[in-house]
């Protein structure tokens, strides 16, 4: 299975990209994915700071990622 990952604002800076597809076992918790996926390593030490959304709904790191999901990593919001 694969899921689409989006990186916004500082998360894009840390990752050096704005999006990517990642193949992973199905289902897998986001916290496990962060631990096991080398390419996501720039985000690992930012876990306490990160906001995560799955399919455009806020989620926590316990949320499981499934095939075709859209997972967004975001810093705290600062609009206004």
């Amino acid at each position: 299975m694969s899921a689409k990952f989006l990186f916004f604002a500082q998360c894009a800076d840390w990752m050096g990209r704005k999006d990517m597809e990642i193949s992973c076992p199905n289902p897998i918790k986001i916290k496990e994915l962060l631990k096991k996926t080398e390419i996501l390593s720039p985000l690992v030490n930012k876990k306490d700071f990160l906001k995560v959304a799955v399919n455009q709904t806020m989620a926590d790191l316990e949320k499981e990622v499934c095939d075709g999901d859209e997972v967004a990593f975001m810093p705290p919001f600062s609009g206004g």
Binding site: F8, Q10, M74, F77, S78
Partner: peptide
Amino acid sequence: AKEKVPIWK
């Protein structure tokens, strides 16, 4: 909106 809407400076 400032707390929940994903917009960034």
